[in-house]
Every structure is written in structure tokens, then in C-alpha cells.
Amino acid sequence: MTSPLLETRDLTLAYGAFHAVDGVGLCIQPGTIHSVIGPNGAGKTSLFHCLTGERRISGGQILFDGRDITRRPAHGRVALGMARSFQITSLFQNLSVRENLRLAAQGTAGWRALDFWRRLDSHRRHAATADEMLERLALTARAELPAGTLSHGQQRILEVGMAICARPRLLLLDEPTSGMGVDDIPTMTRLIAELGRDHTVLLIEHNMSIVMSISDTITVMNRGQILVEGTPQAVREDARVRTAYLGEAA
């Protein structure tokens, strides 16, 4: 058995007496697509925020590649190889699509990004990453447009693309299809499935068909805790999941 890439031990996020995340122990194996699902208010997004470093956790531990990152700020986690996308599209609206991707690639440069004297040409690597990503996302034709002028579906794809630009070992995707039209969803599904070949992916998602079709492992959360964990097949057949989640949907 390989050691997990990301592990949480007894992770807790409390707002007063309310425990949004309550003693979660999650293990994400390298090279897998691992999805977290659950009914509204199950604590998925709170869990996500704990992992990205957006929220300071109330208890427990987070390990990335065996290293304790519990107290690391969000930007410090990116440097280790964790990148995230946002549930509500969060781009540099007035900057060009290419610049959005280039900035995302440059984000891993650490102190070198503070270089205020040499022209950008001397950091050509990031521009190359951006161009590569434009191809991959099929956005090359729109590279020079402000990101804010893209269609909603393209903005969602750019959102995910920015996370990939950091060449992360772990991609944290927060409801990548949220608000997407039916037409755009297959593109996103394909993109995520492709990503699964090179990256480890943690996916928080509402859309069941995506989760069931591309995940290696699914964790079902309910009321801040892990209810069930297993393969899509096992989860689909689990009675507890049906009552807590699928039953509710039906």
C-alpha cells in the first residue's frame, strides 16, 4: 500500500458549538481522482476550505506527503504542490486570458516573483506554461481578451486551468461544474478525467453523473462527518447513502 498524498487526522472546524467539520479522517492516494459528495450543509465546502488553508481549523492535523501543513497559510501550500479552483469563479477579470494563466504559473516562483527589475522575458518559462495551457483548454483564440469577457463555461474552464498552471501534485477542485450549462459540462468532465492521468485530484462536486463516471474513490459526507467511503460502485449500492443523500434527491 502506497502512503497517501494528503491525509487528515480528526480534522475539526467549529463555529462555536456548531461543528461544520467533525473529526474527519481523509486519505487521498496519489494518482487517483477522489471525490467528496454529500447533501447540502454536509460540510464539503468547509472541509475544502480547511484543506486550502482558507480557514484555520479548530482541531486535528493535515498532512501533505507526510508533512504537517496544518499551520501553513494558503499561499504556502501552493508552493508545496497543492493548487485549487474556486466554486464561484474568481479570475483576474480585467487581465487577458493568457495573463491569467501566466500569473497562475508564476505563482509558484516564490521569492523570484518579487523581482522588480528584470523584464518578464527573463521569466519565459511561465509564459510557455500559459501558452501550453491555452492549447489544452482550447482558449488560444481568445488569449488576448480580458478574462471577464469569456462565456460562463469558458470562465469555469479557465478557473480550473489556472489551478493546473502551478503544475501541482494535488489539484483541489471546488464544484468545477457549478453554474455551468448542460452543453459545457462534457468538456469539463473530459478535462477532469484527463487531469486524473497526470495529477492527483480531490473533487468536491454536486453533479452525480460526473462523480460516478470519473472517480476512483468517493467519500460521502453528512453532518460534518464521513458517512461512507469506497468505489463508485460500492457507494451507489450503500443503503446509508441512499437514505442520507440519494434518497433525498429522489
Binding site: 486550502t52 494558503a74 499561499h75 501552493v78 508552493a79 493548487a83 485549487r84 474556486f86 474568481s90 479570475l91 483576474f92 477579470q93 480585467n94 487581465l95 495573463e99 501566466r102 500569473l103 497562475a104 508564476q106 505563482g107 509558484t108 516562483a109 516564490g110 523570484r112 516573483a113 518579487l114 523581482d115 522588480f116 527589475w117 528584470r118 523584464r119 518578464l120 521569466h123 489556472m162 498552471c165 502551478a166
Partner: peptide, 21 residues
């Protein structure tokens, strides 16, 4: 410079700038 381009990113969306590292 790289620094200047990052300043623009911060002006545009600081949360995202932090999220990309």
C-alpha cells in the same frame, strides 16, 4: 517586471492571487 504583473493581479483579485501561490 514579474513583480509589477503580480501587483496588477493583487489589485484585480487579491484572494485569487493568494490562491495561486
Amino acid at each position: 517586471s514579474a513583480f509589477g504583473s503580480t501587483l496588477l493581479a493583487i489589485r484585480e483579485n487579491e484572494a485569487r492571487a493568494a490562491a495561486v501561490g
